[in-house]
Design a protein around this nucleic acid. Sequence first.
DNA 1: TTTAGTGCAAAGAATTTGCAAGGTG
DNA 2: CACCTTGCAAATTCTTTGCACTAAA
Lengths: 144, 144
Amino acid sequence: MNKRALEIKKSLSAAGYRLTRPRQAVIEVIACARRSLSPAEVLNRARKRDPRIGLATVYRTLEMLQREGFLDRVGIGSQGYVLMCTEQGLHFHLVCERCRTVTELRASRSLVHRLRRSGFISHRSAIEIVGICARCQRKCAAER
Amino acid sequence: MNKRALEIKKSLSAAGYRLTRPRQAVIEVIACARRSLSPAEVLNRARKRDPRIGLATVYRTLEMLQREGFLDRVGIGSQGYVLMCTEQGLHFHLVCERCRTVTELRASRSLVHRLRRSGFISHRSAIEIVGICARCQRKCAAER
DNA sequence: TTTAGTGCAAAGAATTTGCAAGGTG
DNA sequence: CACCTTGCAAATTCTTTGCACTAAA
């Protein structure tokens, strides 16, 4: 089982949440995802682990995970948003708007300092930068 | 009239878009906004300049402005997203999730370099960091 | 056993689309 | 005058909610 999923489960359990089958399914899906997912995609993947899970539960679980700091939401394009698992420490998520792959980039110490000095506090440890990854750029160039 | 609004209008005009009353109203609203706005808020403000404007037109104009690079979307909380006018050069937007005020922070040269080296290209010049601004933090502390 | 959590279906928001009428270049 | 753009309203899509039932702890 995914190490990160285990961490999240332990933490939620300690916080008093019940580790139900649907919740575990969603947590595992999020923890294993290599790219950001829409709520509907989370549902599809979660159903492979627990076929009875419903969309409302996915939404409720996602909301809970976000509240507890295990999840980030990124708006991509015009409709909906996508989700990804939050990791520790301030860092950037380079989100490709074509393939939705997420690449990480650690934040420099100076940025952390400047942020702190500005008095602004972010509860998110990930900062999203939306754009196009190197691979999709090559693909795009090849198409012409 | 707002200088930024003028720039946007000129650029759109040069690109072959018609500068209609509703479009001008939306552009002026966005260019003058001190905080990010939801589409419905944009509609309300735009109606003060052109009372006949409809919500669908606001959506269509926002989409166009985003496509042309004059607008950024940020997801805040669970529902909807907010909008803000994009400025020039890579920089951060510190978006307060309480009052939606946007504060700017220039990006360090090293970040720009590291981003470039990663091969990732962002068409956005603004990077959003969602959190709580210093003022709202004080307000929050005072409430207790 | 207790009660948080669930699935379902219906309600409520947000966003997009079709089309006849209108206004810009 | 041509045709891009609009307003309206309907359609679609996304998200939340109410409630009887289920299953963690």
